[in-house]
Design a protein around this nucleic acid. Sequence first.
DNA 1: GCAAATTAGACAACAAGGTTGTCCTTGTCC
DNA 2: GGACAAGGACAACCTTGTTGTCTAATTTGC
Lengths: 159, 159
Amino acid sequence: MSRSGADLALLLLGGFRSLVDAATAELARRGYEDVRPVHDFAMRAIAAGADSASELGRRLSVSKQAAAKTIAVLQEHGYVERDTDLLDARRKRLRVTPLGFEVLRQGEAIFDELRDQWERQIGSEELANLERHLTALVGARPIRLNAPGWIAQDLGEPV
Amino acid sequence: MSRSGADLALLLLGGFRSLVDAATAELARRGYEDVRPVHDFAMRAIAAGADSASELGRRLSVSKQAAAKTIAVLQEHGYVERDTDLLDARRKRLRVTPLGFEVLRQGEAIFDELRDQWERQIGSEELANLERHLTALVGARPIRLNAPGWIAQDLGEPV
DNA sequence: GCAAATTAGACAACAAGGTTGTCCTTGTCC
DNA sequence: GGACAAGGACAACCTTGTTGTCTAATTTGC
């Protein structure tokens, strides 16, 4: 029963949304409401060294204005802070706060737990295979999480 | 090298976006510009029997207002038509036009071609495995394509 | 057979995450 | 020192959603 290409695409999306919706819901259940995948993704990039709005934009393949908006939200939530750069007066240096790191840490734990569930379901070897092949197919192409609007707005049941 | 759960999610998204961006770009190259995945998805549902805005909303797990907006766009493009229902004066019956079916047909062909590429890359058996496992994991849960905003706005290279 | 409840659809206001464009300020380079 | 590049702020707008409210038509229940 060879599936169609469109089915394949839907399947991949379904997998992604399963994980992400579950993770977002669980994060909300733990008290971190209003954390969306975009935020997690952005914080990760900041923590990894994207310490200015422009740089963050570049890393996420998004305009610097869009990055600035995301940063504003993260700042409101207290997940990142901005202070002026002493070396370059144009920049505002970004810093993930302890609270932000806490979210990051918990998010990671949740995702890992979900991955473990999958592993138990189809077997560790098969999951590794799946990841390996997907990696080969997607290649090194940067993944744009962000497109206008989107991703995990309504949440299903908690994990 | 056991990957993290977050990586897995990103990998799935990456796969999806690879396929969809390529398909959208190729469709645009063939002259069907401004066709987005949402449209394809919606037309498929209409063709499959969701012949009113409310019903379409239900099938796509989306509010009927959102469905109505999508329909309005499809109608503008000439991909679907609406005429009044003789049996129920409240309804407007939806119909996919020949042009709409043409898009559907070409979209399917493109997706199948992409799937074939993947098959050649990792082997038919492996791809079947991947699909099988993903199906098991995602389960019968309905997949919501739609979340505010999104999905394939900017396009990479044509196929 | 008629009132009450449901359903279809229209319209409006708003949210989230993007986009472009313009502008000012601060660094960098020759 | 003057031209250009880069960071960031602000504004207007797009797309795809969301609620909420309203009217008209159909069903259901007594």
